[in-house]
Simulated scan of single mutants.
Amino acid sequence: MSKVERSLLDWQKENVENCFTMIKQAIEDAREEHDIVKQKYCAEYFDISVNTLKDWVTHGCPEIRLDSGMVLYSKRAIHEWLLSFQQ
């Protein structure tokens, strides 16, 4: 393999790795950006039913109740709540 071919392969590998890193960061940013979600989406995120989420709330899971009656959830706060039970 010539020097030019080796350089081209190295450059290509570096670009692929950079793209992968950027995509991972974009996904992480998008997840954090949408931290506050409605009940249905929160249940989907944790792969549980809405009834299970409601049961969690009776056991202390944090929720956000707006004056309008809408209930919202912080995925980050629920993660922290769940981790508090970790032994």
Rank of each mutant, 00 (worst) to 15 (best):
W11E: 15
E33C: 04
I78M: 01
E28G: 00
E33M: 14
Y41A: 06
M70P: 00
T21R: 14
D29P: 01
I64K: 09
H79N: 12
H79Y: 10
V37Y: 00
G69Q: 05
E44A: 08
E28P: 00
Y41T: 05
T21N: 13
F20K: 15
A43E: 06
V57E: 07
L72E: 10
Q12H: 11
Y73C: 02
D47M: 08
T52L: 03
I23T: 12
T52D: 05
Y41F: 08
E80K: 14
R31A: 04
L53M: 03
T58I: 04
K75W: 03
Y73K: 02
L8D: 12
I23L: 06
E17R: 14
E17F: 08
Q87H: 07
K13M: 03
I64A: 08
M22T: 09
A43H: 02
D35K: 06
S68K: 13
H79C: 11
M70V: 09
E33T: 02
I36R: 05
E28R: 10
S74G: 10
V16Y: 11
I36A: 04
V71E: 02
E5T: 08
Y41I: 04
V4Y: 04
A26T: 11
V4R: 06
T58L: 06
V4Q: 12
F85D: 06
E14Y: 03
K40Q: 02
A77T: 02
H59T: 01
F46E: 07
L82K: 15
I27E: 09
V16R: 15
L9E: 15
Q25T: 12
D55I: 09
M70G: 05
R6D: 13
D67T: 14
R76H: 03
I27Q: 09
L9W: 06
Y45Q: 03
V50C: 02
E80C: 00
V57F: 01
S49L: 10
S49N: 11
R6T: 10
P62H: 10
M1T: 09
Q25M: 12
A26Y: 01
C61Q: 00
A26C: 05
P62R: 09
P62Q: 01
D55L: 07
W81A: 03
